[in-house]
Design a protein around this nucleic acid. Structure first.
Lengths: 252, 252
DNA sequence: AAAAATTTTCCGGCATTACCGGAAATCAGA
DNA sequence: TCTGATTTCCGGTAATGCCGGAAAATTTTT
């Protein structure tokens, strides 16, 4: 983090933007202390970002503008896997009644780029753009299993195998074994490895060139996702859907 | 546009980001010529943005990362009107079979921050974050009608009354009269004023303090939206929903 | 294969400007 | 109206964004 960037002011700008995204309606003084920068500097950036249209002033305080929504949406639209997965996500959510989501890897992290809520879906924090460590939940592991040995090591090197619950995989050899097993059986399981009380299942989506593009997943509370659902029914649904997405994806 | 900003490098950075959002998978050289800046400058920014995580390298070319999706989504979640309108949007889409959307004003423009597609919805370009001129379609006009004389003048001053179709309101007095009528009858109509073949209807959402927070709208093809739907049924649905959103919004 | 062409990455110097302390202006509350 | 807090503005300067050009890497052509 302490390293020098070619255009340092961008760090300041995005620091401010991220702070505003995290907590809303902050005053300049608050922003200044949160980002640990002089008020005048923060002010310069706020004025600039506002002028460019990326901030909006509402009720006397600054907020992130919908430009980010637009840019994010456009970027997402352009992902082939997103285009192809829409229908299946919806279907998975309907069939299971739980949260269904589409995840891709970016910068060594698992990013949820789309979610659909089934009728029973727990009102848990699963929203667009949320980022998770690769090793903690099923979607990340499903992708992880198909990334290639060195890329995995590289990512583990950078982000570590942080323990989230007592079930989290924190040992490299354990991870290696787990990933091999996932490759073997074609889907990944997370039994309260990221969050106590939550299980997730995921199947990778692999393109014609053999590269993993992302994964489809179902999340649900442990009490509802019994062993049969967890290890048989849901994996089957996911593998079916993943397969369909793979076919759709390779049309053009 | 030629004016000087306190932090000029941000213009460069967002120029690059917007260019990348618009056209995907551009090489550095292409980006340099598109943004009319030296390659080395573009390179500096790309490296910085990549390091910060806002760009992703895929297949040897840069793309906007899902961070924008996250930031946009978070910003949107924080809008009270968005929280309150979710259910109603869905319902409107179901009831009409057309596109239902939620629009707010930002920087004098109408921004669609949420859409739901009904069964019959035309596969038209209505997506999150899309920006329209206030005077062209129903959602913008519905908001416009409740902004206050001087704010309207200010916006018209800045953005003009650009003609999109032969039906577009391009005269200030006509606009003033139209807005008065909208206030009167409580909803706005757009009869192919923005796009030939498309009609839209919108109802404003006004908070307890009398301030307009946004509008609910239905879009559909002229041949399907006959006069009765256009002037009676859809307005009724929208006014009902807008009213519900208003109530929900003022709970806390 | 080698060479040529193109693109990407890197470097270094200079003019620019991002940064920030402090002052002025504005706002909020009593 | 006064007071305290916050926002806005200003100006000097150390830092750095910018960019030409060269090196490295990649792709295309012969």
């Amino acid at each position: 983090m302490a390293e020098n960037l070619p255009v340092n002011s961008l760090r300041t700008a995005f620091d401010i933007l991220e702070t505003l995204a995290a907590r809303d309606g902050m005053s300049i003084s608050e922003l200044a202390s949160s980002t640990e920068r002089p008020k005048s500097t923060v002010y310069d950036h706020l004025v600039t970002l506002h002028e460019l249209g990326y901030l909006v002033e509402r009720d006397g305080s600054y907020q992130i503008s919908s430009d980010f929504l637009r840019m994010g949406d456009v970027a997402r639209q352009r992902l082939e896997i997103y285009q192809s997965a829409g229908e299946e996500l919806q279907r998975l959510a309907n069939e299971t009644g739980e949260h269904a989501s589409l995840t891709v890897e970016e910068h060594g992290k698992a990013v949820i780029i789309a979610t659909e809520e089934g009728d029973e879906a727990i009102p848990v924090n699963i929203y667009n753009g949320i980022v998770m460590k690769m090793h903690t939940a099923a979607p990340g592991k499903a992708i992880f299993a198909h990334l290639g040995e060195d890329r995995v090591s590289e990512i583990v090197e950078t982000h570590g195998l942080v323990e989230r619950t007592e079930n989290t995989i924190t040992d490299r050899d354990d991870l290696r074994a787990e990933l091999a097993e996932i490759r073997e059986r074609k889907y990944a399981l997370d039994d309260e490895e990221r969050l106590m009380g939550m299980r997730s299942v995921a199947a990778p989506v692999i393109d014609r060139g053999g590269r993993v593009r992302g994964s489809l997943a179902i999340y649900g509370p442990t009490n509802r996702i019994d062993d049969e659902l967890f290890r048989e029914d849901i994996p089957d649904l996911l593998m079916r859907s993943a397969n369909i997405v793979e076919v759709l994806m390779n049309y053009d």
